[in-house]
Design a protein around this nucleic acid. Sequence first.
DNA 1: GACCTGCTGCGGGATG
Length: 870
Amino acid sequence: MTTRQRGKKTVVVKADEIAPATAPPMTGLEPALTWFRERGWTPHDFQLRAWEAYLAGRDGLVNAPTGSGKTLAVWMGPLLESLAKPEADEGLKILWITPLRALAGDTLGSLKAAAEGISLGGRRVDWRIEMRTGDTASSTKKRQREKPPHALVTTPESTALLLTYPEIVRQLGSLRAVIVDEWHELLSTKRGVQLELCLSRLRTLAPGLRTWGLSATLGNLGQAMEVLVGPKAAATVGDESGPALVRQAVSRPIEIRTLVPRDIERFPWAGHLGIRLLPQVIEAMESAGTSLLFTNTRSQTEIWYQSIIRARPDLIGQIALHHGSLDRELRTWVENALRDGRVRGVVCTSSLDLGVDFAPVDQVIQIGSPKGIGRLLQRAGRSGHRPGAVSRLVCVPTNALELVEFAAAQDAVKLGAVEPRYPVRMALDVLVQHMVAVAIGTGEAGVSPEELLAEARATHAFAGMTDEAFAWCMDFACRGGPALTAYPQYARIVPVVTATGAVVPARFKIASDRLALVHRQSIGTILSDSSMTVRLGTGVGMGGGKVLGTIEEGFISRLTVGDTFSFAGRLVQLVKVREMTAWVQPAKRKSGRVPSWQGGRMPLSSLLATAIRRRLDDAEQGRFEGAEMEAVEPLLRVQMQWSHLPRTGVLLIEHTTTREGHHVFVYPMEGRLVHEGLAALVAYRIAAGSPRSFSLAAGDHGFNLATPDELHLDEPAWRRLLSTERLAEDLLLCLNAAQLARRQFREIARVAGLVVPGFPGAPKRTRHVQASSDLFFDVLSEFDAGNMLLAQSAREVLDRQLEVDRMREALERLATQRIEITRPERLTPFAFPLWADSLREQLSSEKWTDRVQRMLVRLETAAGGEAAGG
DNA sequence: GACCTGCTGCGGGATG
C-alpha cells in the first residue's frame, strides 16, 4: 500500500482486521456519547468496544497508537460505572500505573478533565484523583495513606510500596480496577514481573478486581494480554466474559524517506557515527519546524550536537540535547522547551522514545540502525502529534549497508510486522522482594506461606513454580539461606507470635520496623550503574555550581586535571575529582574528548534481519528497488563479484588473507549478541581439536575469526562447529561464564535484598554495592552452592547476554541451509566492517584510523575498477 | 590530539 507523494514514500500501516462493533451501543454508554458530542467528536469504534467490555465486567488490553484517544478508551469505563453506581463511591477505586514518572502528571490532567466533564442527569463524578511517585512530598504520601484518593496515578514501584503499608492494604478491598499504561514497556522486564506479583496480590485483596492494559503494537499482543490478566483469566480467553483484546483498526500514516548519500563511492563501508551526512541532515531540519534526532548512543548525541552547532553557529540556542546521563533538571528544561516550541531540534537517545507528547514535533530523524521495527515505529510516532497529522521519519544511514537495512525496515513497516517481547519467568529475586513486602504490609497478623504461594502461582511469571523452589525462597527470606544464618539482617521475616507468647508457625511478619524501612527504600528492580556527578564550579568553599549529569568513573580516570571534554552540549575542563564528584569549568578550547558510557547493547531484531535477507535475495536476482537499493547497488555488485551475498537459505562463509593474518567471516545475520556467542563457540570448538589463538569480532551481520595460520575447514567441519549439541555447556565453558554470572549477580543481589543501597541523602558508593555483591557471589558459590539465585544469574547470562534461545534457533536454521564457502582475494563490503572492528582491539586508535583509511582506499580503487570493468 | 556505538526506567519518612 505505497503511494508516491512529492517524491516521498507514504507508508500506510495496515492494522489487523477487527470485527466491527456488532450490537448497538449499550445504554450505559450514554454519558460518554454525550461527553464526545459536546466536544464535537465521535468516539472510535475501539473506544466503544472497550467501554462495553469494561461495563460487562471483563478484563482487557487496548492496542492503539498514541494520539488515538486510548486513555479515554480505558478511563470512561470506570467513570460510567461510577455514574451508574454512585453509592459505591468510597475508598480507592482505580489504580492507574504508568512506567514513567514524567507521564504521571500529564495523565492526571487528562483523567481529571474527563471526570469533571462527564455527567448523568446532572450528577457528576465526585472523585479525588491524585498521583503518587517517588517525587511526591512525604506529607502528601502520609495523607494518602490515611485517606486514599478515589483514583491514584502511580508507578509500578510505588504500587509495590503501597502494599507495604498495613493501613492502605486494609482499605484496598474497595479497588475496582487497575489500569496499566504502556504495558509493552514493562512486559519483558523484571519491572513487569514485580507488577504481575502486585496485581496478583491486589486480586486477593479486592476479589473481582478488573485489569486493563494499554499497549503499543507487539508481535505477541495476545500473550501480552494473558500475562497482564494472569493465568486464571487467560484460561477464559475466547469466552464471552473472558478478557478482551481491543485494537484500533487505523493507524496514523507514516511518511518515511532515507537520506541517500550523494556520492556513494565515497560513503563509508563501516562505522556508525554518520557525520558524513551532516549537511543533508541540517537541510532536512531546516525543511521542517521541529525535529527530534534519535541516535543510538549517548556519546553520539554529544558528537552530533557539537557537529551541528560547529557547522551552524546560528543554531546555538535553537537546538538542544537529551539523554539519560544528563541531570534531570536539564532534561526537564529541554522537554518544556520542546513542548513550547522554543527549540528547533533535540538530539536524543531512547530517553525521548516515550513520555509526554510534544505537539510541535513534526519530523523524526533516525541516525543509524533502528535495530528493530518496533523501535522505528515508536520513534516515528513521536512526530505529527496533531489530529490529522502525518508522522514523518527521515532515515540517516551511517554506513553503506544500512541503506539495505532502511529499505528492509520499510518493507516490514508496510507489512505491519512488529517484534514480539517475551515475558520474564522465574525471577526469584523479584519474588523474594515481593514476599518481604507483603509480610510488611500484613502487619502484626502476618501472611501465610500458602497465600504467598497461591498468589505467586496466579502470575504468569511463577505459574509453574515448584513447592521446592517456593520453600527455598521462604527459607531465604527467613534466614538468608544456610550460609547467612548468623546475620540478623537476613532474618527478614519471622513467625508471628501471639500476645500470650505462642508462636503461630503458619504465619510470617516482618522482623522489625528497621528492616521494614530498609526494605521500602530498596524496592524496585532497576540497578543504577556506578557513576560520578559532573558539577560546574571549583569545588572550593560553598560555591557549588550546577549539576550537569553523570559520567562513568572509567572515563574520568583516563583524564588528567585540565583535560577538556564535551558534556551536556558544553565544552568543559576537569578541575578536580573529589569523592564521587568531578568538578568542571567552561573550557577555553574549541574541542575535546567525548565521554562514552557502557550501556546495553541492542542487537538487530530477527524480524529486521529477515527483512534484510529478503532484500539481499532480491539483489541476488538483480532487483534493486527504491532509492536506497539503487544507491547501494554498486557495492552489492562488488560483493557478488568478489564473493556472494548472504541471503535466505544460505550461510555464507568467506576465507580471506590480509597482512593481519587469515580471516574467516561468517554471516548468520542474527544480531550482535548471538554472533559474539557464536564466535566464541566456534573458536572454542576449533581449539578443542587443535589449540591455537584467535582474535574475534562480531557485528549485527556476522562474525570474524582471525588466526595466524590458515584454517582448513570444509562443509562437514562447519556443520560440526555449528551443532546445537552441548550448546549451553560449551557456551558456559568458553565465555568465562563465572565472570559473566558474577556480574549479572549484582542485579540479583540488589533485587533480592542481599545488598541494600545507601540511605537517600547519604548514598553508598555504588562501588561498595558492587564489591559486596561480588563477595556474596563468591561466598555463596563456596558455602551455599544450592542457592537458587546463583542458578538464576547463570540463566540470565544465557538469556540476556547471549540470547541463547535465539542462538539455538539460528543454529537449527543454519543446519538446514546450504553452506557457501568463498575465498575472495580482498575484504568484501560485508567483511570490511568486521575486519575494522577486529583490528581495533589490537591497535591504538590513531594507527587504527590510518590503517582503516589505507585499506578503504585500496578496496575502493579495486571496487571502482571492477565496476568499470564489469 | 581524539571520540569513532552501545539505551531506558524507579525508589523513605518523621519532625520542625
